[in-house]
Design a protein around this nucleic acid. Sequence first.
DNA 1: CGAACCTCCTGCGGGC
DNA 2: TGCCCGCAGGAGGTTC
Length: 273
Amino acid sequence: MPELPEVETTRRGIEPHLAGRTVRAVIVRERRLRLPVPATLARLAGATITTVGRRGKHLIISLAAPKGHLLVHLGMSGSLRLATPADPFRPHDHLALTLSSGRQLRFHDPRRFGLVLHLTDPDPLAHPLLRGLGPEPLGAGFTAAALAAACRGRRAAIKQVIMDPRVVVGVGNIYASEALFRAGIRPGTPAGRLSLRRLARLVDAIRGVLSDAIAQGGTTLRDFLGAGGEPGRFRQQLFVYGRAGAPCRTCGTPIRHRVLGQRSTCWCPRCQR
DNA sequence: CGAACCTCCTGCGGGC
DNA sequence: TGCCCGCAGGAGGTTC
């Protein structure tokens, strides 16, 4: 579920509660995630958390040297919430870190497509899961020229290209559709056929939609909640995602829907060409 | 290499 | 009411 804005909302929610705290206990209730939760996680007891960073949809909880980093990915259904040790565990609360503040960070993930790893390399970005990632969409490295280079010669749909984390990180199924609406581009357009001018518009649209969604605390479709339990408010600002058949909020034309690359895709046939 | 398809897993909503 | 099916915000793997 979580795309970049939801992960960033989570990061901002947990960071003030984690930075400077010491991990008192590590509780692992379920090891079977996308990759097994490593046994070395137990070694984190006694470690002090320094920062909570993000790379794409990955959270990086850094520990004072030489304890390494925790790499957390929320997959489709994962979330991090702050609780207290006295709160009862819910089903699918797979992992908990008890903190020196008396609070407890809990990793919850019904579908278990998420990931919690312990990285021992001082540089977390050297990890194989992070090494091949493309630029951050809100950073200086994501430019029209960079996107054009990724699109050159490709017949794949532009929507699939902007959802490829080697091209740009953090753009998932909701925001890909929304950004293409803002840019006036149909999702199925072959990537290699788009002009630099239109790709530049798409870069701006991706930046804009992600920034706006972060400012609204993300999108809650069914169950995303911030670290403090509050839903995201961006859903009211969706123009196409989840609106198949409904009138376009710009021109009134019914929003169309089709499956593209195994993913549900929505667009306005009039506003997007 | 790129593109199409499959897989992991649980929960929920719609339709019958 | 209850059951079954399809679908869900991700991403890695396989096959051609």
